[in-house]
Amino acid sequence: MSGPLVDFVELTLVKAAPLIYAALAGVLCERAGILNIALEGQLTVGAFTGVAVAFLTGSPLLGLVAGIAAGALAGALLGIAATRFGVDQIVAGTGLNLLALGGCAFGLTVVFGQPGASSEVHSLGGRGEWILIALAFLAAIVLHFALYRTAWGLRVRACGENPKAVRSAGIDPRNVRLIATMIAGGLAGLGGVYLSLGELDLYSDGMTAGRGFIALAAVIFGRWTPFGAMGAAIGFGALAALQFTLQRSGIPSELMQALPYLAALAALTGIAGRARAPQSDGVPYTE
């Protein structure tokens, strides 16, 4: 089965998968009250660690696991900074993005002895790529279920709205938020691994190409819900796919690349309807 439409759908899914992972990470963090603008850094860390470990061990599966773990660790850094040290989340997120960027570029030189890009490694392969794509959709379903049907999800949502109420219910909102940022970091790390070991078989500086920021836009478009964010991520994936389809049509590729960001800016004017962000989204809670 092939043809232009099938190709387009395939490409849309390929481009959407990392955005779905990152957008779900964004939803989870923001529902817990942490505005995670370090998604880009977490994608980067996941992508690099995956390739580095796959290179050192020869096993892309170990790379996958390491990439998720590294993403979770990067998420934990944000979570610890935000919940234990009262760091402003936006400033910390900006710092962590720089840290990830510099750290991975540094690591690249150390591990592969060359700047810019790694050498090619054993990737997860075509099948692996499609499993990861399917997992992205599954992750959205699981997150939806977890947020709305479990006690943990209730606590997460309560933390995003009013952490003091969570505190007075006898639960430490700092722990809830920290765990949310770690899981989110793992999701974003998985998105990064998908980029470097799923879609490709190497890491290069800047390969995440702003997907972490597109994911933030998807969170707003998706009104802070897992399915909404997934839908928005698929939409942005379709835009990316369209870019390839329209390559020779004369429409500048930069315009196509800019569309998700322009759409996000438009969303900020409220034309997509005024969904409300969680009340304590980005508001520090310390004791």
């Binding site: 900074a81 400033v91 910390a92 710092g95 962590l96 720089l98 840290l99 570029a105 540094f106 030189t109």
Partner: peptide, 23 residues
């Protein structure tokens, strides 16, 4: 020493100093 270590340290500085200022 890869020059990127500077970017890394600058990122760390932002996180550390934000803690100081905002606390």
């Amino acid at each position: 020493v890869p020059k990127d270590v500077v970017t890394f340290v600058e990122g760390l500085a932002i996180v550390a100093l934000a803690a100081r200022r905002f606390v």
